[in-house]
Amino acid sequence: MREAFAARAAELIDADHGIAIVLAEISADLFQDAAAAHPDQVINVGIREQLLVSVAGGLALAEMRPIAHTYAPFLVERAFEQIKLDFGHQGTSGVLVSVGASYDWAEGSNTHFSPRDVALFDTLPGWRVFVPGHAAEVPPLLDRAVRSDQGAYLRLSLRHNSTRHGRNDGSLTVVKEGTRATVVAVGPLLDNALAAAADLDVTVAYTNTPRPLDTAGLRDLAARTGNTVVMVEPYLEGTSAAIVSRTLSDRPHRLLSIGVGVEELRRYGTAADHERLHGLDAEGIGARLRGFLAV
């Protein structure tokens, strides 16, 4: 996904001199050619994440469209006040693109884990969140993010599904139909959710645009599946619970949230290992689904 992002971003910069990318060393090697061709549009501020986000905000004030990119916890957590104040509070917006996700670099441990990022964006007005499940989904999502005057957070991961899914309009895409529940799988967890639901009578729907969540689509699917909903999210468990609850507040409904646990595991290994430890592999998701549906 990172390579797909860098290649598309370089094309955007080349085509539109009003677009700039701001880096903090991370991924700078992927932008060497773009930087040589467009030195004013590819800005590497060094390992200075507060400056990374503020410079992007300052570029937006100069009426450029900034893309700020670095590792997820440094982009979103270290510089969160910059995100809060240097875009929306200024009446501007920008595009933020992260790598690392919840546990991509499992050997790096908690310093490089960012399961909280989407929950943090839910505390700010106006931000859209894109979580691609496949590298081929990245370029169109980046285009949507850049060609808009709304803020957007694009969360890239090493984890991915075997093929691309989803339309590029933010709507939920039904991948499998059933009657007992609607399982919404976000981004790279679709394959695991599908495997988990293979022998269950449930609908599985996919989105790579969790914000804004397709609440109209969710209401429709929920109505056809007993107003029983399962959110399977590759970030902090329960991140979308408030939105689902609000979406279905006029009906009796049930919700199961499956996602990354809040505990610090202090374990190394691989991302696949951490997926299993958090119960996000097919076996773990399947066990939670069967318990919830009492089958």
Partner: peptide, 27 residues
């Protein structure tokens, strides 16, 4: 008023971005 301020330490980093942006867009 060009920027909303009050939390210290934001104006100068924002100004760096704007200075870069003005340079990049030909001003």
């Amino acid at each position: 008023v060009e920027i909303s301020s009050g939390s210290l330490g934001h104006g100068l980093p924002l100004a760096v971005g704007t200075a870069l942006g003005l340079r990049a867009t030909g001003f």
